[in-house]
Design a protein around this nucleic acid. Sequence first.
DNA 1: ATTTTATTGAGAATGAATCTCAAATGCATA
DNA 2: TATGCATTTGAGATTCATTCTCAATAAAAT
Lengths: 142, 142
Amino acid sequence: MKQEKELYRDFLRSKNLKLTKPRLIIMEAVFENHEHFNVDDLYEQIKKKHKNVSRATIYRTVPLLVESGLIKQSLRCESKDIYEHTYGHENHLHFICENCGKIIESGFSEVANLIDTLAEKENFKISEYNLGARGFCKDCQK
Amino acid sequence: MKQEKELYRDFLRSKNLKLTKPRLIIMEAVFENHEHFNVDDLYEQIKKKHKNVSRATIYRTVPLLVESGLIKQSLRCESKDIYEHTYGHENHLHFICENCGKIIESGFSEVANLIDTLAEKENFKISEYNLGARGFCKDCQK
DNA sequence: ATTTTATTGAGAATGAATCTCAAATGCATA
DNA sequence: TATGCATTTGAGATTCATTCTCAATAAAAT
């Protein structure tokens, strides 16, 4: 957590952005959690613990966290954008069980390498991978 | 196109749904195109042919086409749900440009093979792949 | 401490997707 | 071919996540 905070500070500084109280509160809330989250989750979490931060500010700050590389946008869920940590978390691909909703995380680098090659062929510069599959986990196949 | 229409008819019949004019117009519009599309694209396309169908009906009909297996939901683009054909189309992965929204399709089987191996390790049975990356196409990098 | 400039909060605005309901249509039956 | 009825449609209203606006506030530069 120390490190995330440092990285965040550096990022803000490098962009000439101010290190404001709401920005700190939001980033702390983000790293209290180790699950996927959406803006509303953050809002409620912050409301419970700290002083309030407006939804508008959360909506404005989350993209900064994404840009800083600390989190990334994940698959949408229930019509909401959801996010997941990237810092300190291996990139991974998701297997999502259509029956029980379980998310299984699996290897990544081999796949990413392959994708990189394909992207190069198209002259495409990747900023974020989106890799996974839906199906049935071992408990939900009968 | 003949076949798609047949499959669609059969699907509707099997669900005791009526083969109405709007449903036919929409499915024809869907299969005129060979690109990814969203509801608005369909609406405009249909309007051009002077066969108006309301947006509400398109929103109601697209899920039927998905359920029938003729199309599937693809990655979101510009805050809109987008769809792609599945019937008669190879699986592929998407590179989506964050700037201009262009979707580049690229190889698939090598990646899919790799993913299959990973899925096997987890004892996971894949029913649908979800493979791609966001970034910038060659025209949108400066 | 004062000035400058970015940031915030609150609510309004936007826009995709969904819902409502009276009118229209498909289709089974006579 | 006409009748009856359940389904479907269109148009607009509604919802809800996200973005925008702008006056008030806070950070940091001087």
